[in-house]
């Protein structure tokens, strides 16, 4: 079953446009949602959550239309926005007490177990928690109401490497049961190399590609050659950088002849992002 099915989302702003954003996430997998700052990640997530009006498109979660079953589906979604803080002067206990009333499947025992696992002290105020602890608290809340789909906007930004690694291990553990699915947006691509099953890449308000991680990377080639070789592939490249040794650039695998003498390698997610960002926006 599809945990999340986004179909043709469109949204027009004066200086920005979300154009026919479509992607699907199978239940039980982790999807990394990548893109540069301002590419439309948060706008897409807010559209999924029905927080902003879209001009077109549909969102289906666990087989149901979000617009028609908003309350019911929000019971099944755990959502966390990195960097946004709520009621920071309230204690964890006070906040949880107010939140749990909204969820029909709230399980106090599960909540307690996550509190102790994450070493969260209920008497602490939100403002006293570190960035990593705040993300963990959001996750504890989401998991205690039995969320099947976790939508996390930049959950790992601002975390130290240890906390990040810890969180990524947790994500993998959560999806292992096959019931929980995670969509998380980030611009820290190394996180996705570690734990994502699928990658959806958005640039300039448009989905460039949404695919299984290795397939995603294999669909591009990172070329390295001297300047004389550049003219062979220049027209077909997504973008390239020229330096005193020659050039380095990104090309779609289908546009590249493997028998060519130009050195080609599989790019990392970060390289794909960087070369797409260098491309003229009009052609993206």
């Amino acid at each position: 079953m599809l945990a999340l099915d986004v179909r043709n989302l469109s949204k027009q702003y004066p200086n920005f446009q979300l154009r026919n954003v479509s992607f699907q996430l199978e239940q039980g997998y982790i999807m990394g949602f990548i893109g540069a700052n301002g590419a439309g990640k948060t706008t897409t997530i807010k559209s999924i959550m029905n927080m902003i009006h879209t001009e077109g498109g549909e969102v289906h979660i666990l087989g149901k239309n979000m617009a028609e079953h908003e309350i019911e589906l929000k019971q099944e979604i755990g959502c966390a926005f990195g960097g946004i803080e709520f009621y920071t002067r309230s204690r964890i206990r006070t906040l949880t007490d107010a939140i749990k009333k909204f969820y029909t499947h709230w399980d106090d025992a599960v909540y307690r177990s996550y509190l102790s696992r994450f070493k969260l002290d209920e008497t602490k105020k939100i403002a006293e928690l570190s960035t990593g602890m705040k993300v963990k608290y959001s996750l504890a809340l989401a998991l205690s109401h039995g969320a099947k789909l976790l939508i996390l906007d930049e959950p790992t930004s601002g975390l130290d490497p240890v906390a990040r690694d810890d969180l990524l291990d947790l994500f993998q553990e959560l999806v292992a049961g096959g019931e929980i699915s995670i969509l998380f947006s980030t611009h820290i691509t190394s996180d996705l190399e570690k734990c994502a099953d699928f990658i959806t890449f958005i640039a300039d308000g448009q989905i460039v590609k949404s695919a299984e991680k290795e397939e995603f990377k294999e669909s591009y080639r990172l070329l390295n050659g001297d300047e004389s070789q550049l003219s062979e592939v220049k027209d077909r490249m997504i973008s390239y950088k020229v330096n005193s040794f020659g050039f380095t650039g990104l090309i779609r695998a289908r546009d590249f002849d493997p028998s060519s003498s130009i050195k080609a390698a599989t790019p990392s997610l970060e390289e794909i992002m960087i070369y797409f960002a260098k491309k003229e926006p009009a052609y993206v």
Binding site: M49, M51, E70, I71, E72, K74, Q75, C79, F81, I84, E85, F86, Y87, T88, R89, I99, F102, Y103
Partner: peptide, 14 residues
């Protein structure tokens, strides 16, 4: 200042 609107929107409410 407490971002109540965003907080409330994420709860299962309309």
């Amino acid at each position: 200042s407490q971002n109540d609107m965003m907080f409330t929107t994420m709860l299962p409410v309309i």
